[in-house]
């Protein structure tokens, strides 16, 4: 059985579990609660910007998600820059100038990242070419076709299998 219903006793816990799930899905909300979004910076815009930036301490989290102290400081910094009317690019340039491209979750397209960006497409093209070449070679290659004797044997086997087959 794939799904076994939970014993009755734990069902009352379901709302709590559901609340925890919602809280988990709502990650990041807590990190921006301290900011004032009634002014020029909207919550949505702020989250969009810090969601694109990497926390340098816990490297697999964005500035939106991270609770590291440095992430907090950098959020304050980004908020102040945005509140002072800086554009998204200016804010991102500010951080890249200090911490390098590493702060960006999406690495920029430039010569050192060509392999990263275009490599998969190049591999795909190589794969398609290899496939076409192999298929063509096979259709032309007499080695892969059956001799008359082999063909006869194959047909006999298929016939026998067909007779013994009880399924429709």
């Amino acid at each position: 059985m794939i799904f076994s219903p939970a014993p009755r006793a734990i069902w009352p816990l379901a709302p709590i579990a559901f609340a925890l799930l919602l809280a988990a899905l709502h990650a990041g909300a807590g990190t921006v609660a301290r900011y004032d979004f009634s002014g020029p910076v909207t919550e949505e815009h702020f989250k969009a910007v810090i969601g694109k930036l990497r926390c340098l301490v816990c490297q697999n989290e964005t500035l939106l998600d991270s609770n590291a102290e440095l992430a907090q400081d950098l959020r304050d910094e980004v908020y102040q820059l945005m509140a002072s009317g800086k554009s998204d690019e200016e804010v991102i340039d500010f951080l890249v100038a200090r911490y390098g491209d590493f702060v960006l979750y999406d690495p920029p397209v430039k010569p050192s990242t060509y392999l990263l960006w275009y490599g998969p497409f190049a591999l795909f093209v190589i794969g398609v070419v290899a496939l076409v070449v192999t298929v063509r070679r096979r259709t032309r290659n007499p080695e892969s076709t059956l001799s008359a004797e082999e063909r006869e044997r194959a047909e006999r086997l298929l016939r026998e299998a067909g007779e013994g087959d009880e399924h429709p």
Binding site: Q59, V96, R98, Y99, G100, D101, F102
Partner: peptide, 9 residues
């Protein structure tokens, strides 16, 4: 070492 982020400075 992924912890060593090269400095642009």
């Amino acid at each position: 070492d992924p912890k060593e982020v090269p400095s642009p400075l």
